[in-house]
Design a protein around this nucleic acid. Structure first.
Lengths: 113, 113
DNA sequence: ATTTTATATCGCAAATATACGATGAATTAT
DNA sequence: ATAATTCATCGTATATTTGCGATATAAAAT
């Protein structure tokens, strides 16, 4: 692109967009689903459940970790990942801004669209 | 990339990822915010509220429309866009799958991560 | 009829994302 | 000590996204 306009937007818009981007790939949704149903999880089990090479899964895990949605610690030979529910729920709640904004006037009538 | 693995994932994973991708750009979040607080909206007003060229905004609107999150009709000289709340709320509700999956065992203890 | 206005689409350049093999680093098993 | 295991990172190829000027389209105003 000619110019990166990212910083011309508001902080909350960037934050919500970044959260969305973190989960905007089926592999990362699948990883979150796997993590959500595990008490704890090593990377190996995640790789086995996905149609991707180990390097690719590791890269997706890195992105999820960078977004804050998952936490990870190295435990000896293996790594342990899990969802950071505090961060996750905070972001999901953030979607409420749209409903809040529409409280007064929204556009559900036939006459509009 | 060497191979596109998209179709190796489950339909619900693809659907949720696509929704996230549709809103994974600050401009599209900003557009949704503008639409949420308007009764109806022509593209011109949206362009004025964004730090982007008209062509770029039109492109973002096209993506949002393709995702189903917004509806649009051409009304004479102008176009009218608005949020499709039915679709929007359905997708937000879809995030519940993670909480559902974690109902039995999740990972919020210190001992895990 | 011509000009103006509003918006969409085309075509291109630059930036980012996706995917994977190869390799590295650290730990555990032999 | 050496080998095997587990996972991260590097390098690289290709695909997709982003952004905009130029142009097209179509209605409204003159």
């Amino acid at each position: 692109m000619a110019i990166n306009r990212r910083m011309d937007f508001q902080a909350d818009e960037i934050a919500l967009a970044d959260f969305a981007k973190a989960i905007s790939h089926p592999a990362r949704i699948a990883i979150l689903k796997i993590l959500a149903q595990q008490k704890s999880c090593i990377c190996g089990e995640i790789v086995e459940g996905l149609p991707l090479a180990q390097a690719t899964v590791s890269q997706h895990l890195k992105e999820l970790k960078a977004s804050g949605l998952i936490k990870g610690t190295i435990e000896g030979k293996t790594s342990c990942y899990c969802i950071d529910w505090e961060v996750f729920n905070q972001f999901v709640a953030h979607f409420g801004i749209f409903a809040d904004l529409s409280q007064n006037a929204n556009c559900q009538s036939q006459s509009c669209c």
